[in-house]
Design a protein around this nucleic acid. Structure first.
Length: 584
RNA sequence: GCGGCCGUGGUCUAACCUGGUUUAGGACAAAGGCCUUCCAAGCCUUUAAUCCGGGUUCAAAUCCCGGCGGCCGCACCA
């Protein structure tokens, strides 16, 4: 049995996680969390919130899981989250249609529809790469779950969100103003997401319904500095650059945050800071830094709008390097898309210290040439163009030679269609579309990674060394024997600590050794035993999960000292005086 | 979707190849009791399983077919 099998076995047995609707046979990509797992997962989410949001002075929101289709048209998910698939009529092999075509050496542009791709297949006589058989008619497969909102005779189409992120962009203006217009502004959201994966595998690593934490940090593209960078600038990062991957050497560069920025490995202070924070977060959850790496995505795997994307990967025994979080510099893509689709101005205004003369680009559509190429669509094109930022249009022409108009039509304009003029004007400030750095975490993957690094075996027993601040149950209370008034005192102790909000349970069954063993399996940091001495002097024995060492302390000190211990403000041996009754 | 392997109490498994001695066995866990002065001790009792459907056969956990589900590989993972 490998580590994954042993963790699965433990998880089923002790209520950590297990397949959903198991009594009906289960279904790939769906997992439930049991009593221990559900609390552990929430503790992870809360810790993330504390570190990334509370301590950074940022905010969180909570949005809906179902959104109308227009949001996903704007976000690009309708277009890009769809795979167009085809099947070989002879050998039944399934392919992505665009992949087979490209494999056959035929150049095609992105975003073709199913019928268009099929046309190419017929024209170029593309066949099944495996057996040479004929390919079936293509059909689109969208990885989003489609839902009909409202009764069927007047329903509108919506989708289950495949990420938590869109609401941050859609709600940006509201949150920005309620947070009194400050930048950088981070807006986080932890929430359930849905992706209709074709073939989910790998247990809790690839799910159809899962929890994601999306964090959108909005900032002024002219100022990506982050004041708290000093706190982490000496932290070491293990970076695998895209260059090292393409060259095949795959050497990991170990540099400090400061060096990474200086050498340009990470292009942006905000991104560097939160990458460093992500590494520290996982370290605090028990994944050592040398078992983590930051892999820069290759240009071809990166989304086209992303300037730079890193995957935070953790080494897992069965699956090797596994992505648990990503950090993408998404530029102003999302906000600008929602501007054009909603027609609302989502730019922010920033006043200059004093008014200054600025040169401003304005665009002038070349009506005649547009008319010539697009005929009656001219009016619509000019309207759509007026909603586009001239700077962005010009930049597209310069970099790609073409500008794709927003909206479902995906019409393309070329430099000849638009003239630009630079005018001088006086400005009291500037309007701009904020740029966004997006760290996002797969909570279920973080959860599983923690279990892998917490799982240990000692003398045939399982010990789950979960860091104590996220342990689902903080303390177990045991009566040494079930007689002579000891259970009564033990129950008093139990009540005392749960009254003080310490998550605890009482266990009086079986032998004391058996109870310790049960505690170890679900990572309970502290076991409290009440014995005959407790009746005399009101002291109890505490046992530490990691070392099994024991100390003795006063019952009245329990609540406060336990709180401090759980928060990591005190070490186990400082809780009381050493105790050695258990040596055998 | 394809190919390979697989599916027995809560967990891990035996019996499957070679159908019948099985009332489906064991270990661990769990529940109740006895015992018990700090690491899965012992004793007694109890609960508890052949994924679903069809076929072959006097007889199916076992052989065959189909379905469902899982793991691994391929593909996919915006």
């Amino acid at each position: 049995m490998d580590l994954y099998d042993r963790i699965s076995e433990l998880s089923k047995r002790r209520g950590i996680f297990f397949p959903s609707f198991e009594i009906y046979g289960g279904l790939g990509g769906f997992y439930d969390y049991g009593p221990i797992g559900a609390t552990l997962k929430r503790n992870i989410e809360n810790k993330w919130m504390k570190i990334f949001v509370l301590k950074e002075g940022m905010v969180e929101i909570e949005s809906t899981m179902i959104l109308p289709s227009v949001v996903f048209e704007a976000s690009g998910h309708i277009a890009h989250f769809t795979d167009i698939l085809t099947k070989c009529t002879a050998c039944n092999e399934t392919y992505r249609t665009d992949h087979v075509i490209k494999e056959a050496g035929v150049e095609i542009r992105e975003g073709l529809k199913a019928e268009e791709l099929d046309k190419v297949i017929r024209k170029k006589d593309v066949q099944c790469p495996k057996c040479g058989g004929e390919l079936e008619k293509s059909s689109p497969f969208n990885l989003m779950f489609k839902v009909e909102i409202g009764p069927y005779w007047r329903s509108i189409t919506g989708y289950g969100r495949p990420e938590a992120a869109q609401a941050q962009f859609v709600d940006f203006k509201r949150v920005y103003s309620s947070e009194r217009e400050r930048l950088p502004l981070g807006i986080a959201q932890v929430g359930r997401c849905l992706r209709n994966e074709i073939a989910p595998r790998k247990g809790p690593i690839r799910l159809r319904e899962f929890t994601i934490i999306d964090y959108e940090i909005f900032f002024d593209p002219d100022d990506s500095s982050y004041s708290r960078i000093e706190l982490l600038e000496d932290q070491k990062l293990r970076i695998l650059t895209s260059k090292e991957q393409t060259s095949g050497t795959n050497r990991i560069k170990e540099v400090t945050v400061k060096e990474a920025l200086k050498k340009g490995l990470i292009g942006n202070e905000i991104q560097a800071y939160f990458l460093a924070l992500a590494v520290r977060f996982m370290k605090e959850l028990g994944v050592p830094p040398e078992k983590q790496r930051l892999r820069e995505q290759l240009p071809e795997e990166k989304a086209h709008y992303s300037k730079q994307t890193f995957d935070q990967e953790v080494w897992l025994e069965r699956w090797g390097w596994t992505e648990i979080s990503g950090s993408a510099y998404r530029t102003n893509y999302d906000v600008s898309r929602h501007m054009t689709y909603s027609g609302k101005d989502l730019r922010v205004f920033k006043a200059f210290d004093k008014p200054k003369k600025v040169r401003k680009i304005i665009q002038k559509p070349n009506r005649e040439l547009i008319q010539e190429d697009f005929g009656e669509e001219t009016k619509m094109i000019i309207k759509l163009l007026s909603k586009s930022d001239p700077q962005v249009v010009k930049q597209n022409f310069e970099e790609r030679g073409v500008y794709e108009l927003p909206g479902p039509t995906s019409l393309k304009l070329y430099p000849k269609h638009v003239d630009f003029e630079i005018i001088e004007t006086e400005a009291t400030g500037k309007y701009f579309i904020p740029h966004v750095i997006e760290p996002s975490f797969g909570v279920d993957r973080v959860f599983y990674s923690i279990l892998e690094y917490a799982y240990t075996e000692k003398g045939g027993r399982v010990i789950l060394r979960i860091p104590r601040d996220i342990a689902p149950i903080k303390a177990l209370v045991f009566p040494l024997v079930n007689k002579d008034g000891i259970p009564e005192l033990a129950e008093k102790v139990y009540n005392l600590i749960i009254e003080k909000d310490i998550v605890a349970r009482y266990d009086g069954s079986g032998s004391i050794g058996k109870r310790y063993a049960r505690a170890d399996e679900i990572g309970v940091p502290i076991c409290i035993t009440i014995d005959y001495d407790s009746l005399k002097d009101n002291t109890v024995t505490l046992r530490d999960l990691d070392t099994w060492s024991q100390i003795r302390m006063k019952i009245t000190d329990l609540p406060e000292k336990l709180h401090r211990y759980i928060k990591g403000k005190k070490e186990f041996n400082d809780l009381g005086t050493p105790y050695n009754k258990n040596s055998t």
